[in-house]
């Protein structure tokens, strides 16, 4: 399984289940834990995934593999997003409408935003997304970004 094959498996698993495959599950595919750790590191080096301190996948943009403040829902399926932009990017990647669950940072009230008929809808659809880190530094610390 080459890097792009493994990347496809990670993304398909996230899209289908909302969860990333674990390092143990990847080990079964690639011939053991050492091979899995090496392959996952290669995926991170190419910015295909971000690994947590435990060596597990924590992000495969725009998907988050762990609970965050941003959740995307479509019927009975749901996904965690890393940030406000990624909460738009998940429906875009899935080519699906979705409800976006998030709360405003300033007063912790729910954000009214969804993708409906392929377009943003809801009270926040004419709002703004705030970026604090210039684009050329996004990958300096992608977790902070």
């Amino acid at each position: 399984m080459d890097e792009l094959d493994l990347r496809r498996h990670v993304y398909r698993t996230l899209a289908d289940t909302g969860l990333a495959p674990t390092a143990d599950e990847i080990a079964e595919l690639v011939g053991g834990p050492e091979a899995a750790a090496e392959d996952l590191q290669r995926l991170e080096d190419r910015h295909f995934v971000v690994l947590g301190p435990d060596g597990e996948i924590s992000m495969a943009l725009p998907f988050a593999a762990r609970p965050t403040r941003h959740r995307v829902l479509n019927g009975s399926r749901s996904w965690w997003a890393n940030c406000a932009w990624d909460s738009l990017a998940i429906p875009a990647a899935l080519h699906a409408d979705a409800e976006i669950e998030a709360r405003w940072l300033d007063d912790d009230t729910p954000v009214d935003l969804r993708i409906e008929n392929g377009r943003p809808a809801g009270e926040a659809s004419d709002g703004f997304i705030h970026f604090t880190i210039p684009a050329r530094h996004w990958w300096d610390d992608i977790v902070e970004t």
Binding site: L61, A92, A124, I129
Partner: peptide, 20 residues
């Protein structure tokens, strides 16, 4: 820096639309 949601949506379709 801020960007309007409709602008980010248009950007996102190109940026992430083929990710899967």
């Amino acid at each position: 820096m801020t960007a309007p949601v409709p602008v980010m949506w248009e950007l996102t379709l190109g940026w992430y639309g083929d990710r899967l």
